[in-house]
Amino acid sequence: MTGLSTLIRGTGPALLLVHGAGGSVQANYGPVLAPLTQRFTVVAPDLPGSGASPNAAGPLELEALADDLVAVATGAGHESFFVAGYSMGCAVAVTAAVRHPERVRGLVLSAPFARIDAATRARVDRWESLLAGPREPLARYVLSVMCGEQYLSRLSPAQADGLVELIGASVPPGARAHLDLLTRIDLTDVLPRVTVPTLVIGASGDRLLSHDLGKQVADLVHGAEYADIACGHAIALESAAPWARLVTDFLASV
Rank of each mutant, 00 (worst) to 15 (best):
A122I: 03
A76I: 02
V108D: 00
L155G: 10
T120C: 02
D117E: 11
V124F: 04
R121Y: 13
P112Q: 04
T95E: 07
D125V: 00
E102V: 04
E79N: 14
E149A: 15
A122L: 13
A118V: 13
Q150F: 12
P137A: 09
H100K: 08
L65V: 10
D67G: 08
C90D: 01
R103S: 13
L131V: 11
A97L: 02
M88W: 05
C90Y: 01
T120R: 01
S144I: 10
P101S: 08
E136N: 11
A76Q: 03
H78F: 12
Y86F: 11
R115D: 05
A96L: 00
R121P: 05
L65I: 09
C90I: 02
Y141G: 05
R123W: 01
M146S: 11
L143K: 14
L143I: 14
R121I: 11
A66P: 13
A84G: 09
A139K: 09
A139Q: 10
A158P: 07
L163T: 15
A64Y: 10
A139R: 07
E63C: 10
F113M: 05
R99N: 10
P157G: 03
G89C: 06
L143P: 12
A91V: 01
L155A: 13
A122T: 14
S129M: 14
L62W: 07
R121M: 11
L155C: 12
D117Y: 09
A158H: 07
E149S: 15
S156Y: 03
R99I: 00
Y86P: 00
E63H: 12
R99M: 03
G75Y: 05
A132P: 07
D68E: 08
A91L: 09
D68A: 14
I116H: 07
W127L: 13
A73V: 04
C147P: 12
P112K: 01
S153T: 14
A71I: 09
V83K: 06
G133Q: 11
C90G: 04
D68L: 04
A84I: 08
V98L: 03
G75W: 08
H78N: 04
V83D: 10
G77V: 03
V124D: 03
L62C: 02
L109G: 09
S80G: 14
A91G: 06
P101R: 04
L130W: 07
A66V: 09
E79R: 15
L62N: 03
S156W: 01
A122C: 09
A66D: 11
A158M: 10
A132L: 10
T95R: 11
V83G: 08
A91I: 08
A118M: 07
A91H: 02
R103I: 07
T120F: 01
L109W: 05
E136H: 15
T74D: 02
P101T: 11
A111I: 02
A97K: 06
D125M: 01
G89D: 06
V142Q: 15
L107C: 02
L62M: 04
L131A: 05
V94D: 06
A91W: 04
S156H: 05
A111W: 00
A97V: 00
